[in-house]
Write a protein that binds this DNA or RNA. Sequence first.
DNA 1: ACCTGAACACCGTTCAAGT
DNA 2: ACCTGAACACCGTTCAAGT
Lengths: 231, 231
Amino acid sequence: MAVKREPMSRRDRPAKPALSRRWIVETAVDIMRREGLEKVTMRRLAQELDTGPASLYVYVAHTAALHAAVLDALLGEVDLSGDEGGEDWREQLRAVMRSYTLVLFAHPQLARSALVARPSGENYLRLVERALGLLSLGGATREQAAWGVDTLLQSATATAAEQSTREHDPAATDDWNATVRALGTASATTHPAIAAHMPALIGGTPEQRFRWGFDVLVNGITHTPAPAVEE
Amino acid sequence: MAVKREPMSRRDRPAKPALSRRWIVETAVDIMRREGLEKVTMRRLAQELDTGPASLYVYVAHTAALHAAVLDALLGEVDLSGDEGGEDWREQLRAVMRSYTLVLFAHPQLARSALVARPSGENYLRLVERALGLLSLGGATREQAAWGVDTLLQSATATAAEQSTREHDPAATDDWNATVRALGTASATTHPAIAAHMPALIGGTPEQRFRWGFDVLVNGITHTPAPAVEE
DNA sequence: ACCTGAACACCGTTCAAGT
DNA sequence: ACCTGAACACCGTTCAAGT
């Protein structure tokens, strides 16, 4: 007996889920993992979702908001435990910041969008919460901790945005080479200080730079008095 | 008697100068001042120069390089004297960094492009030269000065990139509002540290933040030992 | 060497019209 | 309320062909 069945076409592949913000963002993350953030466009995403670009605007205000949502999803990968750091608040904070930096390094173009559109998703809040707690443990005042978290995250984000571009964008590599060349050929007579600082200006391993940059900020944050902010 | 004359059309307005990198960049700066960096596109620029976009590629490798050239031109406006600062190296450096920050704040979208494509023009070199000199005066080692300049410029640039977006881009204002709202509504039970740091997290005048941020970095840079970089 | 027209392969966003 | 087709107004970059 033939079984009565629905027309097959709809069942050949997993049914196309109804449009929803959640599903849109998941698909966007997918495209980013496979092809990079520059392919996460409204048009391309719509195509992947089997609809027209106009449909997305019901759930996403504009492209920047889409990228911000992708970023927050990625921040879910940050290890907030600070486990490697042991008991010391400073080492734990270092581990958290290292994890944050690594996530951004692994997804290059995202760091850039974080500088432009400050994230505000759940994973971002968790990260801020954790960093505030660790700085407080280290004896930072309320203002020092609050502004310090800002500075730490901004610095890590900016570093990732700079470095990442260099690694993945051929054009940006040119720019970096141009900078190195420009610094290198600055003559000792016209730019004596540059010449005198030369090996250091372009040297240092990424790990050395990360460690020093982190220590600079934490030392500065905990030792520089901040004015009180009123309610 | 009728005077014999050339066809007028060519003389009605200042003769169209021959294409040259110099003239291209000047025109680009012009468009940016009038309409913002987002209008400085290859196509728009070519139109302004009365030619086709393809012609520009003889002088400019790609759009990012064009924006980098515009940025370097703008950096000519930075006051390197540090005059307001008096005799103290620290106050002079603060004045220089303040001037740099103000230039970027005045030309918002440029800061963003500086983070992506590191500048390497003459004006950028002068700025680095000056900052290195002042940090050395303050007793920084070669490594501290070299890496410190990087950090100072990066921090100022990132701050401008963040703030500037908020001021000029309506969408970015939304994002900032979203962040403030997200931080503000983080409940005391799920995010106690955020709640505890609340007025400070989003508070402080730009001037307070600038001063504190600068002091954090300078204190950190001069007090944090850096490993030696070999030749 | 320098310049160009034309083409290729894309974008974001809006809006009137449909369900 | 949600979804869509179609349009508007743009992009960057390449390349064969010209001067």
